[in-house]
Design a protein around this nucleic acid. Sequence first.
DNA 1: CCACGCGGCGACAACGTTGTCATAGTGCCG
DNA 2: CGGCACTATGACAACGTTGTCGCCGCGTGG
Lengths: 328, 328
Amino acid sequence: MSDVARLAGVSIKTVSRVVNDEPAVHPDTAERVVDAIERLGFRRNLGARNLRRGSSTGTLGLIVEDVGNPFFSELNRAVERTAAAFARQVLTGSSDEDPERERELALEFCARRVDGLLVVPAGERHGYLVPEMRAGTPVVFVDRPAGDIVADTVLVDNAGGAAEAVAHLTACGHRRIAFLGDSQEIYTARERLRGFREGCARAGVRCEERLVLMRPPTAHNVADAADRLFAGRGSATAVVAGNNRVTVHLLRALALRERRPALVGFDDFELADLLDPPVSVVAHDVSALGETAAELLFARVQGDQSPPRKVVLPVRLVARGSGEAGPA
Amino acid sequence: MSDVARLAGVSIKTVSRVVNDEPAVHPDTAERVVDAIERLGFRRNLGARNLRRGSSTGTLGLIVEDVGNPFFSELNRAVERTAAAFARQVLTGSSDEDPERERELALEFCARRVDGLLVVPAGERHGYLVPEMRAGTPVVFVDRPAGDIVADTVLVDNAGGAAEAVAHLTACGHRRIAFLGDSQEIYTARERLRGFREGCARAGVRCEERLVLMRPPTAHNVADAADRLFAGRGSATAVVAGNNRVTVHLLRALALRERRPALVGFDDFELADLLDPPVSVVAHDVSALGETAAELLFARVQGDQSPPRKVVLPVRLVARGSGEAGPA
DNA sequence: CCACGCGGCGACAACGTTGTCATAGTGCCG
DNA sequence: CGGCACTATGACAACGTTGTCGCCGCGTGG
C-alpha cells in the first residue's frame, strides 16, 4: 500500500480511503490512486484489515465426514449458498469420522478466527469446543448432536423415518424385516435403529436380533451382511437400509440374486427412481438441513443470545416400488 | 496474549516463545504459561501470526462450478486430501458457471492471500488473474483451460474419449449416432463434440448436424432434445451423452420409452452398473485430476519456476452394455 | 578476581491496515 | 478582516503476533 501511496504521491492513509470508498477524497486524487493501484496490481490484505478492524474474518468453518459423499456435498452446497447470502466464505474439512481429525480441524478453524463453526460431529466428546464457544465462536451441530455439550443442533427425524419405513413394509405384508445400519458409534445409525424397533413394535412385528446388523458400510461388509440376512429358511423378506452408503452397496450385492427382498433406504439418492425396481426411500431435505444450520449460525454471529435450539426436520417416505413387493 | 502474560507473570514475548515451542524457556516458566493459556482458553491468532511472519497463510482456494455436483465434490475431496498432506486448508466456492462470480471468488481468495488457486474456469477471460499471478499467487486450471492466459492446466482427454465412445458404438453396428452435449460455451463440451466428429470420421460414419444438440443440461432441455433425436424415421439409434448431468437426465427421459437407443455417457457415475441395461461410460479418474492439480500447485508454491505445464489425463471406455444393443 | 559465555527473559519494532485526531487551505458570513 | 465551517489530507497509534537485540545473573576458565 505504501508503494501505491508513493506512486500516487499521496499518503498511505489516502490510499486506504480510496480502497474503502470513504468520502472526502478529491476526485483527481482518487483517480491517481486508482491508477497506481492498477499499475501495481495492488490488492489489500484482508488479513491485516480484519486484524486492525477487529471485525469478523468473513469466513465460517464446515466440518463434515467426507465432502466427497453426495449427502455432505449437497449439505456443503447449501451452506455455501447461505454463507454467500451473508457475505461469508467457507472453509471445509473432512473428518473421515475420526474425532481427533475433527478436533484438529475445528481448533485450526478457530485459530483462523472463523465467524462460526458448523460441525457434523464424529465422536462423542466435544468438550474441547467449550473454550472456543465461550470465547465467542458460535457452533452449530448438524445431522448429529454433540455428545457432551449443549449447543444449537439441527437434525432430521431419524427415528420417525425408520419407523415409517417399517410401517410401509408391514403394510405390504412383510413380517420378517431386517435392518442394516452403519456402525453403532454413529448417532444417526442408533436413532434409526431405535425407530426401526419402534416401528416393529407399533406394527406388532417381532424385531429379530439376528436380522439387525450394524457395521461400517464398506462394500465387503454389506455384501457379507446380505449373505447372512437373506440366505436360508426364515430369512428376511424385506430390509431397511440405514443410509445412502448402505443402500448403494446393498443394491449392488442384491443385483446378483434372482429373488430380491423388498427394500426401503434411508436418504434419497440420485437415480433411485431409475433402478429396477425403483428404490423407495425415507427422504429428507438436505439443502434445508444446511440452510437451517447456517441460518441458525448467522443468527448467533449477529448476537442472538437465546438458549440453544434443537431443530428437527421432517422426513417423508417416498414409495417408488421397491418396498411394495409382497413377502413371498 | 497479554492477558496470558499478565496471569503468568511474564512478558508477552515469553508467551510467544512457549506457544511456538522455542527453546530457552525455563520449564517452570513454561508451565506457568501453559496453565494460564488453559485457564484463559487462549488460542493464538493465526491471521496476526501470518501477517507478522510474512509467511504463507496455509490456505488454498478452490473454485468449481458446483461443490454439490458429484464430479466436483469428488474433485474437492481429492484436493482436500492433497492439501492436508501439505498442511493446507481449503477455501471452496461455486461459480455456478458464472464468470463474474468466479472472478469475485478468485479475487476475494487472493485478498485473503491464499497460497494458491485451483480453478475450474467458467468463462473464457482470465486476464484478471494476471496481476495476481505476477504478484506470486500460483494458479492451476483444472478440467478446462483458461481462455486467454497461459498457466498450468490439468485436463482429461475429452476428444479422445468421445472418439472412443463413437468407435464403441460403430463397432456395435450403429450408423446414426447422436451427440447431446452441454452448452458450446463450455470447453469440455466443445472438445467432446470435436472428438465425436473425429470418431465419426474415423469410423466412416456421417455426422449429421441435426443429430448434434448442445445446451445446458436441465431436465427440460434434455427431455426436449430426446424427443427430437429419437422420434420419427431416420432418428438416431445411439447417443453419446456429453457429461454426467446429460446422462442422468437423458436416462430419465428415455425411461418412458419402450425402445431405448444405445447410450454411452461421458463421466462415470455411481450406480451406472446397476441400471438396466448398465450404462457404458467414458470414465476418468477424478481423484487423480484433483491430486495432480493440487500437486502441481504445491510445486509452484514451493518455488518451481519451470514453464507452465499442461497435463492431459487418460480416459477409458467402460463397456457395461448400454452401448452394445444393435441398431435396429 | 575478571572476562566471557550462556541461559533466561523483556523491550521494541514491524507486518499491512484503519480509526482518531490534527492541520492546512478555502469560501462565506457578519 | 476575523472567525467559522468545511474539504482534503497526513501523522500516528493500534490490532496480535514474532524477530532482533540487549540486559541480567550465574558459572567457569584463565
